[in-house]
Nucleic acid binder design. Sequence first.
DNA 1: CTTAGCTATTGCATTTTGCAAGTGCAAATA
DNA 2: TATTTGCACTTGCAAAATGCAATAGCTAAG
Lengths: 136, 136
Amino acid sequence: MENKRSDCPISCSLDVFGDKWSLLIIRDVMLRGKMSYSEFLNSEEKIATNILVNRLGVLEAENILSKQVSPVNKSKYIYSLTQKGADLLPVIIEMMDWGAKHNANCPRRELGKKIKKDKPAVIKELSQELKKQIQK
Amino acid sequence: MENKRSDCPISCSLDVFGDKWSLLIIRDVMLRGKMSYSEFLNSEEKIATNILVNRLGVLEAENILSKQVSPVNKSKYIYSLTQKGADLLPVIIEMMDWGAKHNANCPRRELGKKIKKDKPAVIKELSQELKKQIQK
DNA sequence: CTTAGCTATTGCATTTTGCAAGTGCAAATA
DNA sequence: TATTTGCACTTGCAAAATGCAATAGCTAAG
């Protein structure tokens, strides 16, 4: 990890994922079942290839994502969440809730509605699902 | 707001505060009682003046912070949270919790310990306190 | 042997950030 | 009245990050 700006946990968190792209990759893994470079590349936000490589590298170095050779296709890698990565679920959920609440053009879909109805239940349920997929 | 990358609420949120500084300013207002340019400038992370001006402008434009002339000193401005800004409390708390959990050198202080013990209670209590300070 | 799919890497223009110095203005002080 | 101080910016410039298009290796399939 590059130099920390301070000991504040919020600042430390932002040192790791305080940019416009990292949490979108986490979202893709966490909520959309995406696992590979090419799947991330095809997300609607259109991340550039060099940024994607860079962020995957940082997230792997920070032990948020784990990278392994695909058992199906040996020339492919799959990325999955570590426990540390899965622990970002509440951050993602809260950002989702805030974004949906304060943006007219961000309609709540299934998950958004569930969150509005019973946020703790959603977090509990999803974190148990993630537990099954956690690597290393 | 500049062009949205997508309709995803997470992406929309990151379009607004997806950088290394915005949420630290929010933290200062929300948890440390800071209200002015010079107080933000003195935070331990040492934000540069041009970045600070820029972020305060964005946060005000996004209706997250409200800027008013200080009733005490007329040549001074005070910044306070709007409801939209105060709604970021859960995001801040979750980032704090994650940062403290996964960083050896980010010791939990008072608030961190309370969060570990009973997160919903902390959010409830703080959001009621913030309610009193909300502007516009 | 060729082709297609996938994960990068490279080069270059643009934008954002970081840092240091300076400006403008109102209130406080002499 | 003249001077200083505090506060909120602004500017200039170097460095770093981002966006974009093109290309390169590598593996497996045909």
